[in-house]
C-alpha cells in the first residue's frame, strides 16, 4: 500500500475530507515552527537546495520532484509512483517522517501536535508561493571533485569526533543530526560552509580548515554508519 492510499484511509477513518483538516493552519505560528527546518531547507524568494531541497511550491509538488536535488531511494520510489505532497501527505510525513517514508534522508523526529503541523503546512503554502531558483548547490564543480575522492573512513571517524561535540545521533531540534546524510548532500553543505556561501559562525570556522580529502573522509564515514 503506497503512502497515498494510507493517508486516504486515515482521513476516512478520522471522518475528515481530504485536504480539509490541515488547511486552516495559522501561517504566522507556522513561521516559528519552521525554525528547526531552516537548518536544512530554504523557502521563499531565492531559495536553493541546501542539505535538503528548497521548499518553494512544496504543497502540491510531486514527491522527489524538485529539479537538481539528489533524493534518497525512498523519495525516488515515491516519485516513480507519482505520489504528491498534498496537505494530507505532508501532514503524515511531518508527524513521523521515517514512519511515513522509511529510508528518507531527512533526520527529524517529527511533530506530535496536529495543530502545529497544520500551522507549519499553512506557512509552507504561504511562504513557498515564490518562484524557485533551484540552482542545485549539490552539483557545483567543487562538490563533484570531492565526490570523486574515495573517502578514508578511518580518518573520517577520527575527524567526526569534532562534529559529535555538537551534533547528536538522533538530531535535536536545535542542532540538526548529520548522521546518514547522502555524501552529495553532506559534501555540498560542508563546501558551502567552507566557502562562506552558507553562514554559521561555528560551522564556517570549523569547515574553513577542512581540505577536500577531509570532507571526503567525513562524508564516507557518516555514510558508513548509516548502513
Amino acid at each position: 500500500m503506497g503512502p497515498g492510499l494510507r493517508i486516504s484511509a486515515l482521513a476516512l477513518a478520522l471522518g475528515v475530507s481530504a485536504g480539509g483538516a490541515v488547511a486552516e493552519g495559522d501561517a504566522a505560528r507556522g513561521e516559528t515552527l519552521y525554525r528547526p527546518c531552516m537548518a536544512c531547507h530554504m523557502i521563499g524568494e531565492g531559495a536553493i537546495h541546501r542539505i535538503g531541497p528548497h521548499l518553494n511550491g512544496i504543497v502540491g509538488r510531486g514527491i522527489g520532484s524538485a529539479e537538481g536535488f539528489s533524493f534518497s531511494d525512498a523519495l525516488q520510489e515515491a516519485a516513480a509512483r507519482g505520489d504528491a505532497w498534498d496537505e494530507d501527505a505532508l501532514d503524515s510525513f511531518l508527524a513521523n517522517p521515517r514512519g511515513y517514508l522509511p529510508g528518507t534522508a531527512m533526520v527529524f523526529r517529527g511533530i506530535r501536535s496536529a495543530e502545529d503541523r497544520a500551522d507549519l503546512i499553512a506557512y509552507l503554502a504561504e511562504e513557498g508561493n515564490a518562484p524557485a531558483v533551484a540552482a542545485a548547490a549539490a552539483t557545483s564543480p567543487a562538490v563533484l571533485a570531492i565526490l570523486e575522492i574515495e573517502g578514508d573512513v578511518a580518518y573520517g571517524q577520527y575527524l567526526s569526533s569534532e562534529c559529535t561535540s555538537c551534533h547528536i545521533g538522533e538530531g535535536g531540534n536545535d542542532i540538526p543530526s548529520i548522521q546518514g546524510l547522502p555524501p552529495q548532500i553532506f559534501i555540498a553543505a560542508l563546501d558551502a560552509y567552507r566557502t562562506g556561501h552558507r553562514h554559521h559562525q561555528v560551522m564556517n570556522t570549523l569547515a574553513s580548515r577542512l581540505g577536500d580529502e577531509e570532507i571526503a573522509a567525513l562524508a564516507a564515514y557518516f555514510e558508513s554508519i548509516a548502513q
Binding site: S165, C166, I168, G172
Partner: peptide
Amino acid sequence: YRESLGWYDAIVDD
C-alpha cells in the same frame, strides 16, 4: 541560545 541547548545534549552524549 537554542544552539547551546543542542550542544549540551550532544557533549553529554559524547
